[in-house]
Amino acid sequence: MSTPLVVSEVCKSFTMHLRGGIKLPVVENVAFALRAGECAVLGGPSGAGKSSILKMIYGSYAVDSGQIIVSHGEALVNLANADPRTIIAIRRDTIGYVSQFLRAVPRVSARDVVAEPLIARGEAAETARQKAETLLAQLNLPERLWSLPPATFSGGEQQRVNIARGFITDHPVLLLDEPTASLDKANREIVIDMIARKKEAGVALLGIFHDQDVRDIVADRVIDVTGFAPERKAA
């Protein structure tokens, strides 16, 4: 089985220049590998750096040191020092991301928000929209909402739009930041099912799930982030 993502010796800290330049270490020596077809879950209490790790892998946070090697097309790329264009290409083709909150763009319909990643990869707009509608229907988002911009949707509705957007492509790596947080039981089940099918398709998933039940069902293994806590090393 292939290993599309390998994280090693990754350290991250924040330097707060507005507060006298104090340095807040977040994680140190993060190391794990993600295999195709598995769902690994980052575990640990709030503030342990789970989200920071996801964001470093997605490129939204800078990496102080260490490597994040991702298998991008034919090449192995170190995300920790990749240039912006490479990261954009990796996001388009290799690493998908379902964030906790939807960053709504004014006036773009839910259908188009979901279809966008497919269109960005060169899919015909009509095909992409049909696929978007299938996913939204699957996630029980009422059809009357599809043509509306999601900015005014409820938290759960927005989250479903977000999930559909993340799941519409066949990226080999998918990052999930609490995708089920504001969903009811029925919709949670559906997402759990969708994750299972991604696994069957050989996608490597890395997620954060605060919901114990969901985590127990989807997780093949739990990566304990407290093991990467900087204090341990300092002690």
């Binding site: 924040f14 330097t15 707060m16 220049h17 507005l18 330049g21 964001k55 490129g59 939204s60 946070y61 800078a62 912006p84 990261i87 954009i88």
Partner: peptide, 21 residues
């Protein structure tokens, strides 16, 4: 300089941090 969301979500320079905050 850099990827837009990285500069905004994880600004490094003191001035950028001030701007974002």
């Amino acid at each position: 300089s850099g990827l837009t969301d990285r500069v905004l979500d994880d600004p490094q320079a003191p001035y950028t941090q001030l701007l974002v905050s």
